[in-house]
Amino acid sequence: MPSITTFLTYNDQAEEAANLYCSIFKNSEITRVTRSGATGPVMSVIFQLDGREFYALNGGPHFTFSPGISLFVSCDTQAELDEYWENLSEGGQKGQCGWLTDKFGVSWQIVPSRLGELLGNKDPEKAKRAMQAMMKMTRLDIAVLESA
C-alpha cells in the first residue's frame, strides 16, 4: 500500500507554519528539518499532526495556497472546535460555514464530527434547518446545529 503525505509549499515560512501547527494539535512534532548546507536557510520540514505526516517546503513566492483544497478538522466538542478555530484563524481570515484561512494562506475546515449526520438527517426538514443554520455561521456552533 503506498504512503500518502500532504505536501504544503510555502514561500519561506515552512518551519514557522510547522511550529505553529505542532503547538496547536496534540501528539504533534517536527521530525526533520532540512537546510541548504550546514547552516543555510530551511528548505523543508517534515512534521506530524496527531500521527499524520506532513511535508512543508519553502518553494518561493510563486507558490500560493487556494481554498480549492483544505485541511479538514473533525471535532467532538464545542471547546475543541473553538480552540482550533481561534488558534488557526489568528492572523488569518475567518470564513463562512467553519472555513478559515490561516496566516500562511492554508485553508482549514473546523467542523463538528456530527456535521454529516446533521446535514444528512433522515428527516429532510431537520436536515434543511441544520443547513440553513450552518449557512449563517462562521465558527460552527454544535448546539445550534443540533437544535435546528
Rank of each mutant, 00 (worst) to 15 (best):
M1K: 13
M1V: 12
S3Q: 13
I4E: 10
I4C: 03
F7G: 06
L8M: 07
Q13E: 07
A14D: 00
E15C: 11
A18M: 01
A18N: 03
Y21K: 13
S23N: 02
S23V: 08
I24N: 08
F25I: 08
S28R: 02
R32K: 13
S36L: 12
T39D: 00
P41M: 15
V42Y: 10
V45W: 04
F47L: 04
Q48E: 00
Q48T: 08
D50T: 15
G51V: 09
E53S: 08
E53F: 04
F54T: 08
F54Q: 07
A56R: 08
A56T: 15
F63K: 09
F63G: 09
T64M: 06
T64L: 04
I69T: 13
I69K: 11
S70R: 02
L71T: 13
S74T: 11
T77L: 12
Q78K: 15
A79K: 11
A79P: 05
A79Q: 06
E80H: 05
D82S: 12
E83P: 07
E83C: 08
E83N: 11
E86D: 00
G91C: 01
K94P: 12
K94G: 14
G95I: 13
Q96R: 13
C97A: 06
G98A: 01
T101L: 05
K103F: 02
F104H: 03
V111C: 02
L115Q: 01
G120F: 05
G120D: 08
P124H: 13
E125Q: 11
K126G: 02
A130E: 04
T138E: 10
T138G: 10
L140M: 07
D141K: 09
I142V: 14
L145G: 06
L145H: 09
S147R: 10
S147T: 14
